[in-house]
Design a protein around this nucleic acid. Structure first.
Lengths: 193, 193
DNA sequence: CCTACCGATCGGTAGG
DNA sequence: CCTACCGATCGGTAGG
């Protein structure tokens, strides 16, 4: 929203923390590790953030909001269930590939949130999953999809999406759009010739 | 292999550690937490295990070996690619549901292994993934499967399998056999009516 | 399996 | 953003 790209020092701290959390995990990353990676003293971090966990909260809820708002857009579109499922998958992968490090933290480290943040986070996540589940259920009701177990279907989809930060290379040949479409194809039409 | 079910104290320590590692993560679980859960003093743990990491090594490599040996059996069978893929999936889910806690640790905590163990573990994992990849590739070569991206296909499968410890309830209505077959169906024939 | 203890490191604060 | 420092906790050892 600004003409000058201005990343606040707080954002820089959070970004660097995300990198370390991703590689070593939240608990195994110390504030001294983080300070060191930024070239400052550990105590200086606290002029930018209130606590170690505040960083994790920023990362987890920031990503949750990105995923949620995009999926809401998709839901509002008036298309077939296949198209809606496809659009939801593509949207998710787009956000993920734009924020690979944060996505990995979002997926793997949220359990280190304390209460009531953990509870809130899990509610957001179950809500997100249920939105996809509803899309699949609608497809079944309309006869567009076969009568699969929606829980298994949505968990298969969700785990595929969650695992992507582990192997997807945004510098590689395949763009988020194609990857999303290929995943959608595989889920919708299967492997069978 | 014994008539009397005899769980060594070491195994009890490892099992209890697996529970704590699963819930709180390896780094966030202290040896005092573990000792407390067993009703002994932290120092007493070291009569059974050499170090905290030795516990993790036992868990990770123990599970890796279970998965590997079962998949090798499946590979030796002379059946179609669909059937082989299906059998591999069912075998994986069987092992997982028999060792849910250990599977979760195997999946989420292996990164806390130090070198050279981490490297060795990752080699075992890539080998396991490649075995599934080969089954899919053979199916494509024989015209049994359509020409999908094998990397995407195998990653989708692998992430589904890995994520199961998060939601699969072995006390629930669906047994490992059925779950495996349903997942195989979904991947092979898709959702499309 | 215990008591007693080690040096290292943790997240964070006070005060500038 | 720094120096100086806090109490708590870490994985692990010595010696029984």
């Amino acid at each position: 929203m600004e003409f000058v790209e201005h990343r606040s020092r707080k954002d820089q701290v959070i970004d660097k923390a995300a990198e370390l959390f991703r590689v070593n995990g939240y608990s195994a990353t110390s504030m001294r590790d983080l300070a060191n990676a930024l070239g400052i003293e550990a105590a200086s971090l606290y002029s930018h953030i209130r606590s170690k966990e505040e960083i994790l909260q920023n990362l987890c809820f920031g990503m949750a909001e990105k995923f949620r708002s995009k999926l809401e857009e998709v839901e509002r579109s008036d298309v077939s269930s296949s198209q809606k499922l496809r659009a939801g998958i593509v949207a998710h992968i787009h956000i993920m590939s734009d924020n690979l490090t944060e996505s990995a933290v979002f997926m793997n480290e949220h359990r280190h949130l304390s209460q009531p943040f953990l509870r809130e986070f899990l509610l957001l996540r179950i809500n997100y999953i249920n939105r996809f589940k509803r899309i699949i259920q609608q497809g079944i009701d309309k006869g567009e999809f076969i009568h699969v177990d929606t829980k298994l279907a949505v968990m298969t989809l969700f785990s595929s999406l969650n695992w992507m930060p582990h192997w997807y290379d945004p510098q590689g040949v395949i763009d988020p759009e194609s990857l999303g479409n290929q995943l959608a194809d595989m889920l919708i039409i299967g492997l069978k010739a």
